[in-house]
Nucleic acid binder design. Structure first.
Lengths: 169, 169
DNA sequence: CTGAACTTTCAATAATTTTTGAAAGTTTAT
DNA sequence: ATAAACTTTCAAAAATTATTGAAAGTTCAG
């Protein structure tokens, strides 16, 4: 396989992976492009490489910066902005987990907490009890996931790998 | 909060969680409905509860069955099919992980393996080396994720919790 | 200050994904 | 074999999500 073909293939595959991960296809493709580019890239470079519009490139690069997956950098003597991607796949994973924790798990936990306050009356006592029990069990699980994510996203790769290997043995 | 309102809220929230998880909104809502329903439900019941069409209900129930999140059951003396949801949230998580491993991680690993065969020539030797190195590091990570998922999806909740607690300490 | 170089915004448009519902298919009781 | 009860399919329609590109905004050198 030729390098160009391989790069293209990687970008496509990363794009489709991303789209199952709350990351839109183009954003994931831009991220893939950064993952395999040694050099700094400008918005223009991204537009050309992926054949997308200026607005689209700008918006998705911005979001990638918000996620901590791409950094803005200045190139001496250039007016234009340049970007570089986070290459460390472990850090990438941590950032994505953190972001999804905030966007998904935290709202879910809020709702689950509210749902525990459901009132029962004599008519539906049993039904309410069954409901509350199930909500409680989902909430416990969500809390476990939440604290694990918090721990993991603050940890070093080494710590993680070492402990994880033990865990998996 | 009233029970009905609480159920409605749970279904909505689970729906929006699902839509970030490669599970479409309606499928996730149907799943939520099953999570909080003690009784068996027919396709008709689901249609009514969520105000969706027959085709939609049928298709999504079928997919939930494929995912192992809903079971078909027969009610004595009834012609109609009835369904019951998997209530154990740990099992639900295992099934979802397993499914996503198959649908996302495995194809990714295949592509990564292919990409390692990229040919270099004198002109782009260094570029190919950098690319191969990065692909290799992504692949190692993906393999770690893959084997962890395989281990986790086959394990008992108790084993998992116990080991995980140790891990998180 | 001015204008060139660059970035951001956003309404219109396009692409994708989901839903509907009627028709076709299947199963079962008689 | 028939027909009623039920399930599945799928093309068309609706809803949602992503993309474009031109216009507005910003920054900075001269």
């Amino acid at each position: 396989m030729q390098l160009l073909e391989a790069k293209e293939k990687f970008i496509q595959q990363w794009g489709s992976l991303g789209s199952n991960w709350g990351i839109n296809r183009t954003m994931a493709q831009i991220h893939a492009l950064f993952l395999i580019s040694e050099e700094l890239l400008s918005a223009e470079d991204v537009m050309e490489a992926l054949k997308i519009s200026r607005g689209n490139a700008n918006m998705n690069i911005r979001t990638l910066i918000d996620w901590g997956l791409v950094y803005k950098e200045y190139q001496a003597g250039e007016r234009k902005e340049f970007f570089r991607g986070e290459k460390d796949i472990w850090k990438v994973t941590q950032r994505v987990m953190k972001m999804r924790q905030r966007q998904e798990l935290d709202p879910m936990l809020n709702v689950l907490t509210q749902l525990q306050t459901v009132k029962s009356d004599k008519k539906n006592k049993e039904e309410v009890e069954a409901f509350t029990k199930q909500i409680k069990s989902i909430k416990s699980f969500a809390e476990l996931a939440d604290s694990s994510l918090t721990k993991i996203s603050g940890s070093e790769e080494n710590w993680f790998l070492k402990t994880f290997m033990k865990f998996m043995r």
